[in-house]
Design a protein around this nucleic acid. Structure first.
Lengths: 236, 236
DNA sequence: TGTACATCAGTGAACGCGCGTTCACTGATGTAC
DNA sequence: TGTACATCAGTGAACGCGCGTTCACTGATGTAC
């Protein structure tokens, strides 16, 4: 990279960082080119050197958030031995929550209301969104192949008429996933998501004292119900 | 009510209705006094006869949404015999989803991102929010008293350190609820909520074909896991 | 090492827009006697 | 039934604000010969 390109990358990073800070203070809708320019001590039109419109900037922020979240999950999933499917799934969903709490506005940005007046280009957004989900699906798939996925009867097979499908993205070479993996992925993800949304938008406030513990318990129940039981330590 | 008061109530209702329609078109952030006045064919300051500020109007819309949702749940819960706890709970959560799909912006308004720049007065918001939750808690409580609440082991008791509490609201005379009712209410509600949030914000799109069926199945699993099994039809 | 040119970051002025809120006011609707 | 007054809905002008985007431009940084 040339010197000029490095400077450019730095400026882009700085713009995004200011935008995130301002969102943290005033909500996701408060991505304002004027406000960013003011803080960067630059005229507003200067920002158009880096993003062709406000929507462009928002799209970049959304994509970053998805990839950052997915990276946190991936890292967690790799922090344990490959065969420890239960541990890896648990670490992954804990990382999911930790990331959400550490980056609440980024989480709102991707999973909350769309920003008023902004319409996301799905060609960029969909692959980014799938990244995190893929981490969970990957672990489930490996557990299945290892014969360790033994869901309780109610989760044992995909309800015939639910009609799951994960459309292939362009450039994706992998084989289609077994339906059961997709099914458990979706219902599991919904359980993760529900608790976090309630917590993040303050609907657990005043009811649940220790949200972290509640989350862990519910996740253990979830993992047990798909057959990834917590192993008792073996004697000898 | 005097004639004048009736007219006034009608105008208030009309203002809210226009606001809801505009939100439906442009998102929850698009509650604009100017836009409402334009559609009502009235000058903007005229609206201040009915709401003392924009925030006041938003608060009214939020309260209405909470109460409307709670009413839909209550109606569903009363559509079946009082002792049919399973059926009533199922009807209630189905009503919850149906209401969310029928009134997506109202749902966003209460469970999604806060409107930029708006801060909710909790004295009004909290009691309204609790109304719907109370329907679920009520059924669970009745089922418990009838000895029909037999949760599977993992849900059988409140994890000791979760620290649940439902602070009494002023004017609430009822006895404190058993912890297990609160616990099942919260985890159940989170499972309801997660699926609906994913569906409503289009994160199930392209993965789940039939979201209604997925929802029903997951709800049946939930009810089974708290002991409210689907009874098999008895011969003779 | 020096010159000629292209590239690119950033400026300042301007455009047109919509917003919430205040103010002093008009005119109609209701109320008291 | 008529008059005097109070209440209330609604108006029009104005205030001050922030927004995204365009345009023609200056001046510095890089590149080719």
């Amino acid at each position: 990279l040339s010197r000029r390109e490095r400077l450019r990358e730095n400026t882009i990073a700085e713009i995004k960082q200011i935008a995130r800070r301002q969102m943290a203070e005033n909500g996701t809708a408060a991505v304002s080119l004027n406000a960013i320019a003011r803080e960067l001590e630059v005229s507003t039109p200067a920002l158009y050197r880096y993003f062709s419109s406000r929507d462009d900037l928002v799209t970049a922020l959304i994509a970053d958030a998805y990839y950052d979240l997915a990276a946190a999950m991936e890292t967690a999933s790799q922090s344990l031995p490959q065969q420890d499917y239960r541990g890896r799934l648990m670490a992954t969903v804990l990382a999911y929550r930790a990331w959400a709490l550490a980056h609440p506005v980024d989480f709102e940005l991707i999973y909350g209301n769309p920003i008023p007046g902004y319409h996301a280009p799905e060609a960029i957004t969909t692959p980014a969104a799938r990244q995190g989900f893929a981490v969970i699906l990957g672990i489930l798939y490996q557990a299945l192949q290892a014969g360790q996925l033994r869901p309780l009867p109610e989760y044992a097979q995909v309800p015939g008429d639910v009609d799951l499908l994960l459309p292939e993205l362009p450039g994706d070479q992998s084989d289609p996933l077994p339906g059961i993996v997709l099914y458990l992925g979706v219902v599991g993800w919904a359980r993760v998501h529900g608790l976090i949304m309630l917590e993040l938008f303050h609907h657990s406030q005043g009811v649940v004292g220790d949200t972290a513990t509640l989350y862990s318990h519910e996740m253990e129940n979830l993992l047990s119900s798909i057959g990834l039981k917590l192993e008792m330590p073996q004697a000898g």
